[in-house]
C-alpha cells in the first residue's frame, strides 16, 4: 500500500517532468543510429563525393547479430550516462533539497521508500532501453538480414540484468552522498572500475556482472545460454538485492 503510493508518485513525477517522453526518445535514438549510419555511410560518401579517383570503399557490412549489438554498445557508452543523469537525484536530491523532512517525518518504511523509487526508475529506464533495442532490431531486420525475435528477447533479458545492476549501483550511491553531481560521478566511476577489474581478472571472476554485455554479444551469435551466463545473472541478482538491502540500512542509520 505505502509502497504503491510512493511508486505511483514516482510515475506521476516522471510524467509531469516529461521524462516519460524524452528518456524513451533518447534511447530510441541510441538504439537505431548505428545501424542506420553504418548501412548508409557508403552510399552517403559515394553521393557526396570527395573520394580520390579510383579509391574503393570497402566497409564490411556486419552480420545481423553484430549489427544488433551496436545498439548495446551505444547503451553502454551513452545510455549509461543518461541513466546516471536521471538517477543522480533520486534520493540524494530529496535529501539535499529538504523534501525528505516532510516525507520521512511520516511513518514511511525506509525499505518501501528505496525499493519503490528503485522500481519506478527501473521501469522507466528498462522501457526506454527496450524501445531503443526494439528499434535497433527492426532496422537490423530491414537492413542487415533476419534475426529471430526470440533471440532478440532473450538477449534483452540478459542485458536487463546489466541495466538493473547499474541502476542499483546508482541508488546505492544515492544513499551514501547528498550531492547529486557526486552521485553521478561515483556511479559511473564504480561501473568503470567493475568493468576494468572484470577485464583484468576475467579468468577468476567469471561470474562478475561486468561480463553481462559480452554475454549478450555471445548469445546473439551462438543462440545458447551457457552455465556461466546463468551463474552471472544469478550473481548479479544477488548483488542487486544485497546493495538494496545495504542502501536501506545506510539510510535508516544516516544522520539526515
Amino acid at each position: 500500500m505505502q509502497w504503491a503510493v510512493i511508486f505511483k508518485k514516482e510515475m506521476v513525477e516522471y510524467a509531469r517532468n516529461v521524462k516519460w517522453i524524452w528518456v524513451p526518445m533518447v534511447f530510441l535514438l541510441f538504439g537505431i543510429m548505428d545501424q542506420i549510419t553504418t548501412y548508409y555511410l557508403p552510399k552517403i560518401l559515394e553521393s557526396v563525393g570527395g573520394m580520390p579517383e579510383g579509391a574503393e570503399l570497402n566497409i564490411p557490412i556486419p552480420d545481423p547479430p553484430a549489427a544488433l549489438y551496436m545498439s548495446i554498445s551505444e547503451f553502454n557508452m551513452l545510455g549509461v550516462m543518461v541513466i546516471a543523469l536521471i538517477s543522480m537525484g533520486l534520493i540524494a536530491g530529496e535529501l539535499k533539497s529538504g523534501v525528505y523532512e516532510l516525507v520521512l517525518s511520516k511513518p514511511v518504511k525506509y525499505s518501501n521508500y528505496i525499493t519503490a523509487k528503485w522500481a519506478g526508475l527501473s521501469l522507466l529506464v528498462l522501457s526506454s532501453v527496450f524501445l531503443g533495442y526494439l528499434g535497433g532490431w527492426y532496422y537490423v531486420n530491414i537492413l542487415y538480414g533476419e534475426l529471430a525475435f526470440s533471440t532478440f528477447i532473450v538477449s534483452f533479458l540478459i542485458y536487463t540484468m546489466y541495466i538493473l545492476f547499474f541502476i542499483t549501483i546508482s541508488v546505492f550511491v544515492n544513499t551514501l552522498v547528498k550531492n547529486p553531481g557526486l552521485v553521478l560521478f561515483l556511479s559511473i566511476a564504480l561501473l568503470i572500475a567493475i568493468t576494468i577489474i572484470t577485464r583484468i581478472f576475467g579468468h577468476i571472476l567469471s561470474w562478475s556482472p561486468g561480463h553481462l554485455s559480452s554475454y549478450v554479444n555471445e548469445y546473439l551469435h551462438t543462440g545458447t545460454m551457457t552455465g556461466d551466463m546463468w551463474a552471472t545473472m544469478a550473481t548479479t541478482l544477488a548483488i542487486i538485492v544485497l546493495l538494496l538491502f545495504t542502501a536501506v540500512t545506510i539510510l535508516k542509520n544516516k544522520e539526515l
Binding site: 508518485k9 513525477e13 509531469r16 517532468n17 533539497s97 529538504g98 523534501v99 523532512e101 516532510l102 517525518s105 511520516k106 511513518p107 514511511v108
Partner: peptide, 18 residues
C-alpha cells in the same frame, strides 16, 4: 515508530513543487 504520533514542520519546508 514514533512518527505515527507526530506531525513535523521543518523551518524551511520544501515540497514537491510539481
Amino acid at each position: 515508530d514514533i512518527r505515527n504520533y507526530i506531525g513535523y514542520l521543518p523551518q524551511f519546508p520544501v515540497f514537491h513543487n510539481w
